[in-house]
Design a protein around this nucleic acid. Structure first.
Lengths: 189, 189
DNA sequence: CAGTATCCAGTTTGATACTG
DNA sequence: CAGTATCAAACTGGATACTG
């Protein structure tokens, strides 16, 4: 596959998409989250071809997102479970589901709600929060080069982003309090 | 393709994936979030073929995720911007990026960090929170049929999930001696 | 610039049949 | 059950050249 040749991409989103950016992988993970464990159940729920299913499951196991462990109901058989790595996808998955509920459904077509087990209350929307727990909007975000920004594979991109960042006019945030940083960057010209 | 024929899927994740479940759409949105606006810049940054790029952009505009508006720098030209709907993908996008940073990179290969504009601090990990702002794990979640659960297209599935839910043993969450701690974080490595 | 128009190779997918 | 094997068909994506 001319897939973004594994691990050559430097952007984390791109790398994630190397694993998940196809028609089925995300849905399989959704299934596992919802408790599906067995081959034929995946096949039945999703209507995916069996050979494709086998390949996708193998790829997800291979990537470390799923693993096979004995089933609780029948310890002689194996079922697919999330690894810790796979579990880490939960926020992204829920965010995507909520987005779909919000923008691709009408209020009365939402088929499944995610609730807190303890209270039965519907899960609040996943949000971007600052360190004080306050919601952040896109305009309050920025990005900065990370440790790997110098990698030849991405340095040009980072440079381009830096330029865009300088070019695009952005409102200065209301920063009434002290400025802990010695040099404020991104001086708009 | 027998793509999950648009809007026939009932699951919100599946619907979202009808729009975004390919190799490029998510990356295009990432680009827009990072400030890319112009056709040739997308092409240069991603190395995507021009015809494919045109098709994907059109599809995203069509879906209501992107729209064309005059550029700030040159009001005679149009550039791609996020709509409110597209903006709503931000939590999912950031969650995915953070997941990639955590699981697909080493600490020194992370190319871009997302930071708060006001403070320069790196964004905390996107988490699932309950209504009190406390982090939730997967075991503390459950799901329940939504208003659209009766739809013939999904009713069997919901029934299957209901059954799984009853079968799979799940621990009761520890009794919450909830203390309103203002901040909870967790980014191991 | 910002796309279109062609052409084509390589992949992904589904249907089906088969095995342990 | 849980896959594997095979095959044809559908589709995606890339290269390139062209247009307003």
């Amino acid at each position: 596959m001319p897939r973004l040749k594994a691990n050559t991409s430097t952007c984390s989103v791109a790398r994630a998409l190397e694993l998940l950016g196809d028609r089925w992988s995300f849905l399989l993970i959704r299934e596992v989250i919802f408790g599906t464990r067995r081959f034929d159940d995946f096949a039945a729920h999703l209507g995916i071809a069996r050979n494709v299913l086998a390949a996708k499951l193998a790829a997800l196991v291979d990537a470390g997102i799923l693993e096979q462990r004995p089933l609780h109901q029948d310890a002689r058989r194996l079922g697919y479970h999330l690894t810790e790595m796979g579990d880490g996808l939960l926020p992204a998955m829920v965010a995507l589901l909520q987005w779909g509920d919000r923008w691709l459904q009408t209020p009365d077509t939402v088929p499944l709600r995610i609730v807190e087990r303890a209270t039965g209350a519907e899960l609040p929307p996943v949000q971007l929060l600052d360190h004080a727990g306050q919601p952040l909007t896109r305009r309050e975000l920025d990005w900065a080069p990370g440790p790997g920004a110098g990698d030849p594979g991405i340095a040009p991109l980072v440079a381009a982003y830096e330029k865009q960042r300088r070019v695009v006019p952005r409102p200065i945030p209301p920063a009434p309090t002290a400025i802990p940083r010695p040099n404020a960057k991104g001086k708009p010209r």
